[in-house]
């Protein structure tokens, strides 16, 4: 079954839908109209460019080019996380990038090598979109976790010092803040996983069905991807917090920023 192509003229008609939110954002003087239009424009250009790149990546299908592309995605994701959290980029970039790369590779190797099992693990058709989806979810989980962890450490500095000053090990003294970061970061994912299929049809599944896959295949991918996303996000959050801790605390256990 062929997917119906959307012509450029019809895409333009689709863009007209933006008039409704833009009008109300303007009417209530939110100051978000310009941002909305700029974001829509950026999204369109970026996705067209990605579509163009992906065509070539799929055509070449070279392991090294694919790995390089994923490494590029990791760099962009790490720097985006730090920009969104307003934490010191220079100090923490490597921590986030290493955490992302390690957790992505662990999950990619397991998911592709054990669950999906394509002929070549790093084949562009599977490796790149799956890595992209995993990274996108890691990004939001890490933004929430880092904001919560460093935010609560700053707000509740007295609690941190109290624990340290009463004999807590470095790990024990940050445990309440790690706990809070994990809860804040993973509660939304757990909630959305619990209602998936009931109140929302997830993107991957919808995309696959539109692309001509049978719903039963699409569902299996969606389930496995949700598990992979959850595991990779959790591993990456833990690694980011553990590794960044080494950079952000001095040897007396005091925060450097």
């Amino acid at each position: 079954m062929e997917t119906i192509n959307i012509g450029y003229g019809h895409m333009a008609l689709g863009f007209l839908l933006l008039i409704i939110p833009a009008y109300f954002l303007y009417r209530y003087r939110t100051g978000l109209v310009k941002d909305t239009l700029w974001a829509a424009l950026r999204m369109t250009v970026q996705l067209f460019l990605i579509g163009f790149y992906l065509e070539y990546l799929f055509l070449w299908d070279s392991v090294w080019v694919n790995l390089l592309w994923v490494l590029f995605m990791v760099v962009i994701a790490s720097s985006t996380v730090l920009k969104r959290t307003k934490l010191p980029q220079k100090m923490l970039f490597m921590a986030v990038a290493v955490a992302f790369l390690v957790s992505l590779l662990i999950i990619d190797l397991y998911f592709l090598g054990v669950v999906v099992r394509p002929e070549k693990i790093f084949t562009a058709r599977y490796f790149i979109p799956i890595s992209g989806m995993i990274l996108g979810n890691m990004l939001s989980a890490n933004v929430i976790a880092l904001n919560s962890f460093y935010g609560s450490l700053t707000r509740e500095r007295q609690l941190y010092l109290y624990l340290l000053g009463n004999g807590a090990s470095p790990g024990e003294s940050i445990a309440p803040f790690m706990r809070e970061a994990l809860i804040k970061s993973f509660n939304p994912t757990i909630a959305s996983m619990a209602v998936m299929g009931l109140i929302a049809l997830p993107g991957t599944m919808t995309g696959q069905i539109l692309g001509g896959s049978s719903p039963s295949v699409a569902i299996k991918y969606q389930i496995m991807l949700m598990i992979a996303i959850f595991a990779s996000s959790l591993i990456s959050v833990l690694l980011t917090l553990w590794i960044s801790r080494r950079k952000s605390f001095d040897r007396y256990g005091m925060m450097r920023f």
């Binding site: 509740e156 009463n166 807590a168």
Partner: peptide, 30 residues
């Protein structure tokens, strides 16, 4: 720090009950 008890100014442990407050520092391994 393993040998100190430290009480900062106007600090209270953020737990729901008095019992939890008292027990919290004794959850630390040391």
């Amino acid at each position: 720090r393993r040998r100190t008890a430290w009480l900062p100014q106007e600090f209270t442990l953020p737990y729901d009950t008095v019992k939890e407050m008292i027990e919290a520092p004794f959850e630390l391994r040391i």
